[in-house]
Amino acid sequence: MNTAPRIGLLFGSFNPIHTGHLIVANFMATHTDLDAVWLVVSPQSPFKAEQELLAERERYHLVQLAIAGNERLRALDTEFGLPKPSYTVDTLSVLRTQYPNHQFVLLMGEDNLAGLPKWKQVDHILEETPIYVYPRSGASALPKVPEQARVVEAPLLDISATFIRNCIRNGKSIRYLVPENVEEEITRKGYWQ
């Protein structure tokens, strides 16, 4: 029997981390066969412009604040030491070297499935790494799901970091959209104002 820990990897810019990210991460860590979920903070996605991107260390710190006290969740800054933009295949290679006894599962929203064929070395990723897909509101009919992927019945959430940044800029409350300690840090540091 294989007892290697099964770790879900939730990649994101987390700009900022919000309740939607946390609900998905915790749901995957507690309602599937995963032992834990690691939130991989990406310094720069190859598919996203760098505009409005808070410095990587500040975003990583907000993720750490958000998950404090939840032993099933962990923040990773692995991609900070890799060339930018970050590619999932390279990050997986580093993690497999660092944690040879772990099994990794990619976690992604169904809205990201359509872009999967554009990923660097996607065939290699799919050969080695299962994918758990969670539903996203606003995603049109589910794109073709690779046979390595499993769609998980998870809560449907419609919270975006863009909406939160716009609220901050417009002086609107972000209470309950982000954890209280994250809101306090954003306010204290004046992020996105």
Rank of each mutant, 00 (worst) to 15 (best):
D123F: 04
V152F: 01
H124I: 13
N166M: 09
P155N: 08
S137C: 04
L126D: 12
R165Q: 08
T129M: 15
I159L: 03
I125R: 05
N112V: 08
S140I: 08
R136I: 03
Y134K: 03
G138T: 07
T162C: 04
K118N: 06
Q148M: 12
L113Q: 09
R165T: 06
A161P: 06
V151H: 01
S140Q: 11
E127L: 14
E153Y: 01
A139V: 09
N166G: 11
D158K: 08
V122E: 12
P117F: 10
Q148S: 14
N166R: 15
N112E: 09
K118I: 01
D123W: 01
I131C: 10
N112Y: 09
L157N: 02
S137P: 03
P130I: 09
Y134N: 02
E147D: 15
D111N: 14
I159H: 02
I131F: 07
A149E: 07
T129K: 10
L126Y: 06
L142V: 09
V145M: 08
R165Y: 11
V133C: 07
L157Y: 02
P117M: 03
E127F: 03
V151G: 01
I131S: 03
N112G: 00
P130G: 03
G115E: 15
V145G: 02
L142A: 00
A114E: 13
K120I: 08
R150P: 04
A139C: 14
V152G: 04
P155A: 09
Q121E: 12
A161Y: 04
E128D: 13
H124P: 00
I125Y: 05
A141G: 15
Q121K: 11
D123H: 14
G115Q: 14
V152S: 05
T162Y: 07
I159K: 03
V133K: 00
Y134T: 06
K144F: 08
P130C: 13
Q148C: 11
V122L: 11
I131T: 06
S137T: 10
P143T: 00
Y132E: 05
A149H: 07
E110G: 00
P117D: 05
A139P: 02
L126K: 14
W119A: 07
I131Q: 03
H124C: 04
A154Y: 11
V133G: 02
S140M: 08
G138R: 07
E128L: 15
V145S: 01
I159V: 08
A154D: 10
A141R: 10
T129I: 15
K118A: 05
A139S: 10
P143L: 07
R165M: 11
N166S: 15
V152P: 03
A149N: 08
A114M: 06
V145E: 04
Y132H: 06
K120N: 06
S137K: 12
I164P: 01
K118H: 12
A149V: 11
D111S: 05
V152K: 02
S137R: 11
D158W: 07
L126E: 10
I164N: 00
T162Q: 14
P155V: 06
P155K: 07
P155R: 02
E127V: 07
I159S: 01
E153H: 12
D158G: 07
L113T: 04
K118V: 00
T162H: 10
P143R: 00
L126R: 08
E147C: 12
E153G: 00
R136M: 06
E128R: 15
E110M: 06
C167V: 04
K118F: 00
P130S: 12
A161T: 05
E110P: 00
V145Y: 05
K120T: 02
E127A: 13
I159F: 05
V122Q: 14
A149F: 09
E147H: 14
